[in-house]
Design a protein around this nucleic acid. Structure first.
Length: 301
DNA sequence: TTAGGCGTACAGCTTCGTAC
DNA sequence: GTACGAAGCTGTACGCCTAA
Protein backbone atom coordinates (compact mmCIF):
# COMPACT_ATOMS: atom_id res chain seq x y z
CA UNK A 1 0.00 0.00 0.00
CA UNK A 2 1.31 3.41 -0.93
CA UNK A 3 -0.63 6.43 0.32
CA UNK A 4 -0.76 9.68 -1.64
CA UNK A 5 0.82 11.51 1.32
CA UNK A 6 3.70 9.02 1.52
CA UNK A 7 4.50 9.18 -2.20
CA UNK A 8 4.46 12.98 -2.29
CA UNK A 9 6.34 13.41 0.98
CA UNK A 10 3.53 15.02 2.98
CA UNK A 11 4.19 14.27 6.60
CA UNK A 12 0.55 14.38 7.72
CA UNK A 13 -2.22 11.95 8.69
CA UNK A 14 -5.74 11.82 7.28
CA UNK A 15 -6.98 14.04 10.18
CA UNK A 16 -4.70 16.87 9.03
CA UNK A 17 -5.55 16.59 5.33
CA UNK A 18 -8.57 18.08 3.55
CA UNK A 19 -8.58 15.42 0.84
CA UNK A 20 -8.98 11.65 0.87
CA UNK A 21 -5.50 10.24 1.33
CA UNK A 22 -5.93 7.55 -1.32
CA UNK A 23 -4.01 4.34 -1.73
CA UNK A 24 -2.18 4.76 -5.05
CA UNK A 25 -1.69 1.04 -5.59
CA UNK A 26 -5.29 -0.15 -5.59
CA UNK A 27 -8.92 0.96 -5.61
CA UNK A 28 -10.34 2.86 -2.68
CA UNK A 29 -13.89 1.74 -1.96
CA UNK A 30 -15.19 5.20 -1.29
CA UNK A 31 -17.94 6.94 -3.24
CA UNK A 32 -18.65 10.61 -3.90
CA UNK A 33 -22.08 11.18 -2.39
CA UNK A 34 -24.13 14.03 -3.95
CA UNK A 35 -26.25 14.25 -0.77
CA UNK A 36 -23.16 15.06 1.30
CA UNK A 37 -22.38 17.80 -1.21
CA UNK A 38 -25.90 19.22 -0.87
CA UNK A 39 -25.83 19.44 2.92
CA UNK A 40 -22.38 21.01 3.26
CA UNK A 41 -22.27 24.80 2.65
CA UNK A 42 -18.56 24.53 1.84
CA UNK A 43 -19.54 22.78 -1.38
CA UNK A 44 -22.28 25.15 -2.52
CA UNK A 45 -20.55 25.53 -5.89
CA UNK A 46 -20.52 21.79 -6.41
CA UNK A 47 -24.17 21.55 -5.40
CA UNK A 48 -25.16 24.33 -7.81
CA UNK A 49 -23.33 22.63 -10.67
CA UNK A 50 -25.11 19.34 -10.00
CA UNK A 51 -28.53 21.05 -9.84
CA UNK A 52 -27.83 22.96 -13.03
CA UNK A 53 -26.74 19.82 -14.85
CA UNK A 54 -29.77 17.88 -13.61
CA UNK A 55 -32.17 20.65 -14.64
CA UNK A 56 -30.57 20.77 -18.08
CA UNK A 57 -31.05 17.04 -18.45
CA UNK A 58 -34.72 17.32 -17.51
CA UNK A 59 -35.06 20.28 -19.87
CA UNK A 60 -33.97 18.08 -22.78
CA UNK A 61 -37.01 15.90 -22.06
CA UNK A 62 -39.39 18.85 -22.25
CA UNK A 63 -37.87 20.01 -25.52
CA UNK A 64 -37.68 16.39 -26.77
CA UNK A 65 -34.03 16.99 -27.58
CA UNK A 66 -32.68 13.43 -27.42
CA UNK A 67 -29.41 14.41 -29.06
CA UNK A 68 -28.78 16.95 -26.33
CA UNK A 69 -29.54 14.30 -23.67
CA UNK A 70 -27.02 12.03 -25.32
CA UNK A 71 -24.50 14.84 -25.50
CA UNK A 72 -24.88 15.71 -21.81
CA UNK A 73 -24.59 12.08 -20.72
CA UNK A 74 -21.73 11.14 -23.03
CA UNK A 75 -19.22 12.96 -20.86
CA UNK A 76 -20.15 11.10 -17.69
CA UNK A 77 -17.36 8.58 -18.06
CA UNK A 78 -15.75 6.87 -15.14
CA UNK A 79 -13.17 9.25 -13.70
CA UNK A 80 -10.20 6.91 -13.17
CA UNK A 81 -8.07 9.81 -11.93
CA UNK A 82 -9.82 9.84 -8.53
CA UNK A 83 -9.01 6.15 -7.89
CA UNK A 84 -12.28 5.80 -5.95
CA UNK A 85 -15.06 3.25 -6.35
CA UNK A 86 -14.96 -0.21 -7.86
CA UNK A 87 -12.34 -1.44 -10.24
CA UNK A 88 -10.80 1.79 -11.38
CA UNK A 89 -8.14 1.53 -13.98
CA UNK A 90 -8.96 -1.74 -15.68
CA UNK A 91 -12.48 -2.73 -16.59
CA UNK A 92 -14.43 0.17 -15.15
CA UNK A 93 -17.67 0.65 -17.03
CA UNK A 94 -18.88 4.12 -17.77
CA UNK A 95 -22.38 5.42 -17.37
CA UNK A 96 -22.05 6.82 -20.86
CA UNK A 97 -21.29 3.50 -22.51
CA UNK A 98 -23.81 1.25 -20.81
CA UNK A 99 -26.61 3.24 -19.32
CA UNK A 100 -26.95 6.27 -21.53
CA UNK A 101 -29.94 4.91 -23.44
CA UNK A 102 -31.57 3.51 -20.32
CA UNK A 103 -31.21 6.84 -18.56
CA UNK A 104 -32.60 8.79 -21.49
CA UNK A 105 -35.50 6.33 -21.79
CA UNK A 106 -36.24 6.56 -18.06
CA UNK A 107 -36.14 10.34 -17.97
CA UNK A 108 -38.49 10.46 -20.93
CA UNK A 109 -40.94 7.73 -19.93
CA UNK A 110 -40.80 7.34 -16.16
CA UNK A 111 -43.69 9.23 -14.52
CA UNK A 112 -41.47 10.12 -11.57
CA UNK A 113 -39.34 12.26 -13.88
CA UNK A 114 -42.14 13.47 -16.15
CA UNK A 115 -44.27 14.68 -13.23
CA UNK A 116 -41.38 16.26 -11.36
CA UNK A 117 -41.60 13.80 -8.45
CA UNK A 118 -37.80 13.58 -8.38
CA UNK A 119 -35.89 16.67 -7.39
CA UNK A 120 -32.25 15.78 -7.75
CA UNK A 121 -29.65 13.63 -9.41
CA UNK A 122 -29.28 11.52 -6.30
CA UNK A 123 -32.88 10.27 -6.67
CA UNK A 124 -31.82 8.30 -9.74
CA UNK A 125 -30.64 5.45 -7.53
CA UNK A 126 -34.20 4.86 -6.29
CA UNK A 127 -35.86 4.59 -9.68
CA UNK A 128 -33.40 3.42 -12.33
CA UNK A 129 -32.09 -0.11 -12.38
CA UNK A 130 -28.30 -0.42 -12.57
CA UNK A 131 -27.78 3.00 -11.01
CA UNK A 132 -26.29 2.67 -7.58
CA UNK A 133 -23.65 4.33 -5.41
CA UNK A 134 -20.78 3.68 -7.79
CA UNK A 135 -22.38 5.13 -10.90
CA UNK A 136 -23.97 7.98 -8.99
CA UNK A 137 -20.50 8.73 -7.65
CA UNK A 138 -18.98 8.63 -11.15
CA UNK A 139 -21.67 10.94 -12.52
CA UNK A 140 -21.33 13.39 -9.65
CA UNK A 141 -17.55 13.42 -9.94
CA UNK A 142 -17.66 14.19 -13.66
CA UNK A 143 -20.22 16.97 -13.22
CA UNK A 144 -18.06 18.77 -10.65
CA UNK A 145 -14.78 17.70 -12.25
CA UNK A 146 -13.58 21.24 -12.96
CA UNK A 147 -14.03 22.15 -9.27
CA UNK A 148 -12.19 18.99 -8.25
CA UNK A 149 -9.27 19.86 -10.52
CA UNK A 150 -9.08 23.30 -8.89
CA UNK A 151 -9.28 21.69 -5.44
CA UNK A 152 -6.43 19.32 -6.37
CA UNK A 153 -4.30 22.20 -7.63
CA UNK A 154 -4.88 24.14 -4.38
CA UNK A 155 -3.77 21.15 -2.32
CA UNK A 156 -0.69 20.66 -4.49
CA UNK A 157 0.31 24.31 -4.07
CA UNK A 158 -0.23 24.02 -0.29
CA UNK A 159 2.02 20.95 0.00
CA UNK A 160 4.50 21.96 -2.69
CA UNK A 161 3.70 18.99 -4.97
CA UNK A 162 5.00 19.13 -8.55
CA UNK A 163 2.26 19.02 -11.17
CA UNK A 164 2.36 18.10 -14.85
CA UNK A 165 0.09 18.90 -17.76
CA UNK A 166 -2.45 16.31 -18.94
CA UNK A 167 -5.55 16.46 -21.13
CA UNK A 168 -8.73 16.33 -19.05
CA UNK A 169 -12.37 16.41 -20.14
CA UNK A 170 -14.82 18.35 -17.98
CA UNK A 171 -18.13 20.17 -18.29
CA UNK A 172 -17.81 23.89 -18.93
CA UNK A 173 -20.88 25.45 -17.31
CA UNK A 174 -20.24 28.82 -18.98
CA UNK A 175 -20.76 27.38 -22.45
CA UNK A 176 -22.65 24.23 -21.48
CA UNK A 177 -20.21 22.03 -23.31
CA UNK A 178 -17.87 19.16 -22.56
CA UNK A 179 -14.39 20.43 -23.25
CA UNK A 180 -10.91 18.93 -23.32
CA UNK A 181 -8.24 21.07 -21.76
CA UNK A 182 -4.65 20.65 -20.67
CA UNK A 183 -4.54 21.11 -16.90
CA UNK A 184 -1.89 20.77 -14.22
CA UNK A 185 -2.28 17.76 -11.93
CA UNK A 186 -0.05 15.59 -9.75
CA UNK A 187 1.07 12.37 -11.46
CA UNK A 188 1.77 8.86 -10.21
CA UNK A 189 3.50 6.47 -12.63
CA UNK A 190 2.76 8.92 -15.44
CA UNK A 191 -0.98 9.04 -14.72
CA UNK A 192 -2.79 12.15 -13.44
CA UNK A 193 -4.50 12.12 -10.05
CA UNK A 194 -7.53 14.15 -8.99
CA UNK A 195 -8.04 14.57 -5.24
CA UNK A 196 -11.46 14.42 -3.57
CA UNK A 197 -12.45 16.47 -0.49
CA UNK A 198 -12.87 14.05 2.41
CA UNK A 199 -16.22 15.57 3.47
CA UNK A 200 -18.04 14.36 0.34
CA UNK A 201 -17.18 10.66 0.31
CA UNK A 202 -19.17 7.80 1.74
CA UNK A 203 -18.55 4.11 2.30
CA UNK A 204 -19.88 1.26 0.17
CA UNK A 205 -22.22 0.05 2.89
CA UNK A 206 -23.65 3.47 3.73
CA UNK A 207 -24.10 4.32 0.06
CA UNK A 208 -25.85 1.08 -0.79
CA UNK A 209 -28.32 1.00 2.07
CA UNK A 210 -30.31 4.04 0.85
CA UNK A 211 -32.80 2.05 -1.19
CA UNK A 212 -33.56 -0.28 1.73
CA UNK A 213 -34.07 2.68 4.04
CA UNK A 214 -36.47 4.28 1.55
CA UNK A 215 -38.36 0.99 1.15
CA UNK A 216 -38.81 0.60 4.90
CA UNK A 217 -39.92 4.22 5.27
CA UNK A 218 -42.52 3.79 2.52
CA UNK A 219 -43.96 0.73 4.26
CA UNK A 220 -43.94 2.24 7.74
CA UNK A 221 -45.37 5.65 6.86
CA UNK A 222 -47.55 5.01 3.78
CA UNK A 223 -48.25 1.43 2.76
CA UNK A 224 -49.32 0.23 6.22
CA UNK A 225 -52.07 2.89 6.11
CA UNK A 226 -53.17 2.15 2.55
CA UNK A 227 -56.55 0.40 2.80
CA UNK A 228 -56.51 -0.67 -0.87
CA UNK A 229 -53.23 -2.49 -0.44
CA UNK A 230 -54.10 -3.87 2.98
CA UNK A 231 -57.26 -5.50 1.61
CA UNK A 232 -54.98 -7.87 -0.33
CA UNK A 233 -52.91 -8.88 2.69
CA UNK A 234 -53.58 -11.25 5.54
CA UNK A 235 -51.93 -9.86 8.67
CA UNK A 236 -49.88 -12.19 10.84
CA UNK A 237 -49.79 -9.90 13.87
CA UNK A 238 -52.02 -10.03 16.91
CA UNK A 239 -55.73 -10.03 15.96
CA UNK A 240 -54.72 -10.17 12.30
CA UNK A 241 -52.78 -6.92 12.45
CA UNK A 242 -50.79 -6.26 9.29
CA UNK A 243 -47.08 -5.99 10.03
CA UNK A 244 -44.26 -4.53 8.00
CA UNK A 245 -43.02 -8.04 7.34
CA UNK A 246 -46.42 -8.95 5.79
CA UNK A 247 -46.04 -6.02 3.38
CA UNK A 248 -42.47 -7.04 2.62
CA UNK A 249 -43.51 -10.59 1.87
CA UNK A 250 -46.33 -9.48 -0.42
CA UNK A 251 -44.29 -6.68 -2.07
CA UNK A 252 -40.57 -7.57 -2.14
CA UNK A 253 -38.21 -4.67 -2.73
CA UNK A 254 -37.61 -3.80 -6.37
CA UNK A 255 -36.94 -0.46 -8.01
CA UNK A 256 -40.11 -0.91 -10.10
CA UNK A 257 -42.10 -1.17 -6.87
CA UNK A 258 -40.44 1.94 -5.40
CA UNK A 259 -41.23 3.77 -8.64
CA UNK A 260 -44.92 2.74 -8.45
CA UNK A 261 -45.23 3.66 -4.78
CA UNK A 262 -43.65 7.06 -5.40
CA UNK A 263 -46.30 7.75 -8.04
CA UNK A 264 -49.11 6.41 -5.83
CA UNK A 265 -47.96 8.52 -2.84
CA UNK A 266 -46.75 11.81 -4.38
CA UNK A 267 -45.38 13.16 -1.08
CA UNK A 268 -43.46 9.99 -0.26
CA UNK A 269 -40.03 11.07 -1.53
CA UNK A 270 -40.33 14.63 -0.18
CA UNK A 271 -41.45 13.39 3.27
CA UNK A 272 -38.69 10.80 3.30
CA UNK A 273 -35.95 13.28 2.46
CA UNK A 274 -37.11 16.13 4.66
CA UNK A 275 -38.34 14.23 7.74
CA UNK A 276 -36.35 11.06 7.91
CA UNK A 277 -33.43 10.55 5.56
CA UNK A 278 -31.48 13.64 6.65
CA UNK A 279 -30.42 11.89 9.86
CA UNK A 280 -28.70 9.20 7.79
CA UNK A 281 -26.61 11.67 5.77
CA UNK A 282 -23.34 12.02 7.64
CA UNK A 283 -19.84 12.27 6.31
CA UNK A 284 -17.26 9.67 7.27
CA UNK A 285 -14.84 10.26 10.12
CA UNK A 286 -11.11 10.34 9.41
CA UNK A 287 -10.69 6.96 11.07
CA UNK A 288 -13.45 5.43 8.92
CA UNK A 289 -11.76 6.74 5.75
CA UNK A 290 -8.39 5.36 6.88
CA UNK A 291 -9.98 2.01 7.68
CA UNK A 292 -11.51 1.73 4.20
CA UNK A 293 -8.38 2.85 2.38
CA UNK A 294 -6.22 0.49 4.44
CA UNK A 295 -8.68 -2.41 4.16
CA UNK A 296 -7.47 -2.84 0.60
CA UNK A 297 -4.09 -3.73 2.02
CA UNK A 298 -5.56 -6.92 3.49
CA UNK A 299 -7.66 -7.69 0.38
CA UNK A 300 -4.67 -7.35 -1.85
CA UNK A 301 -2.46 -9.53 0.36
C1' DT B 1 -13.50 -16.65 -19.10
C1' DT B 2 -13.03 -13.31 -15.74
C1' DA B 3 -14.17 -9.67 -12.90
C1' DG B 4 -17.03 -5.59 -11.97
C1' DG B 5 -21.32 -4.05 -10.28
C1' DC B 6 -25.96 -4.45 -8.64
C1' DG B 7 -29.59 -6.61 -6.05
C1' DT B 8 -30.90 -9.28 -2.32
C1' DA B 9 -30.81 -12.43 1.53
C1' DC B 10 -29.34 -13.14 5.98
C1' DA B 11 -26.98 -12.74 10.50
C1' DG B 12 -26.53 -10.24 14.48
C1' DC B 13 -27.68 -6.45 17.13
C1' DT B 14 -31.16 -3.12 18.91
C1' DT B 15 -35.67 -1.63 19.91
C1' DC B 16 -40.37 -2.37 20.91
C1' DG B 17 -44.43 -4.61 22.83
C1' DT B 18 -46.68 -7.63 25.89
C1' DA B 19 -47.37 -10.58 29.83
C1' DC B 20 -46.66 -11.28 34.47
C1' DG C 1 -40.78 -2.75 36.67
C1' DT C 2 -38.79 -6.61 34.47
C1' DA C 3 -38.12 -10.34 31.37
C1' DC C 4 -38.79 -12.42 27.17
C1' DG C 5 -40.10 -12.85 22.49
C1' DA C 6 -41.14 -10.46 18.22
C1' DA C 7 -40.07 -7.09 14.99
C1' DG C 8 -37.04 -3.81 12.95
C1' DC C 9 -32.50 -2.07 11.48
C1' DT C 10 -27.92 -2.29 9.65
C1' DG C 11 -23.92 -4.23 7.71
C1' DT C 12 -22.07 -7.78 4.96
C1' DA C 13 -21.61 -11.56 1.94
C1' DC C 14 -23.02 -13.89 -1.99
C1' DG C 15 -25.22 -14.83 -6.48
C1' DC C 16 -26.43 -13.36 -10.94
C1' DC C 17 -25.86 -10.66 -14.98
C1' DT C 18 -23.05 -8.27 -18.17
C1' DA C 19 -19.09 -6.20 -20.41
C1' DA C 20 -14.37 -6.61 -21.65
Amino acid sequence: MLLFSEYFGINKDQNDLNFVNINLESDNKLFVDPRLIDINPLFKNYSNSISLFWCSLLETRKSKSFKKSEYLLKGLKEPKETMLGYGNGRNGKSIAEILRNKLIYSINSNENFINGLTKSLSDLEFFIKDISSDRLSDMTTKIVYEDLILFTQEQCVRYNITMFYSLQEYFDFNNFKWINKRVLLPHYQGKPIVLIPKQIVNSESKSNRNLSIFYRYAIKMFVLFDEDINKEIEGTGKDGKILAKDIKERFPLTKDLIMKWNIKYPTLLIDFQSNYFSSYINCLSDSEIVEIVCRKKHDAA
